[in-house]
């Protein structure tokens, strides 16, 4: 049996419209051989989690550049847990100060990428840390 490809949901939660990074990451992951779904803009955490479950993804990458990361990442983690989908790995990126990165990682966010990260680094992270559900 051939193993299916790792599926990643790239999502833009909240009201923030800065989508340059999310779109580049979506494209780089696709070119890196993963199956990618991009939500488009202005998603509520509820919508992101519903899409993640419906599309049966292995990971959710959240992009937040508006400063609302503390609320949005936490809410997505909570909702995944509520739906019994905490096996879905949450990672992300954006304008996120170091203190907040530490707090979010302690909360369960697997990795956070800040400006200056290369697409190779993100592709490598997904390759090394995300596995398809058994």
């Amino acid at each position: 049996m051939t193993e299916r490809k790792v599926r990643v949901l790239v999502a833009k939660p909240g009201l923030d419209g800065h989508d340059r990074g999310a779109k580049i990451v979506a494209r780089a992951l696709r070119d890196g051989g993963f199956e990618v779904i991009y939500t488009g803009l202005h998603q509520t955490p509820e919508q992101v989690v519903a899409t993640a479950i419906q599309e049966d993804v292995d990971a959710v990458g959240l992009s937040v550049l508006s400063g609302a990361h503390n609320y949005l990442f936490k809410r997505v983690l909570e909702l995944l847990k509520e739906k019994g989908a905490e096996d879905i790995v949450v990672f992300g990126g954006g304008i996120i100060p170091p203190e907040d990165i530490a707090a979010l990682k302690a909360m369960g966010v697997k990795e956070l990428f800040t400006p200056g990260t290369s697409t190779q680094e993100i592709v490598r992270f997904v390759r090394d840390h995300i596995r398809t559900a058994a």
């Binding site: 909240g14 009201l15 923030d16 509520t44 508006s66 400063g67 609302a68 503390n70 609320y71 949005l72 809410r75």
Partner: peptide
């Protein structure tokens, strides 16, 4: 509700 977490941030 859609403003949660974003008030006064950006």
């Amino acid at each position: 509700p859609r403003a949660r977490g974003e008030v006064g941030k950006e």
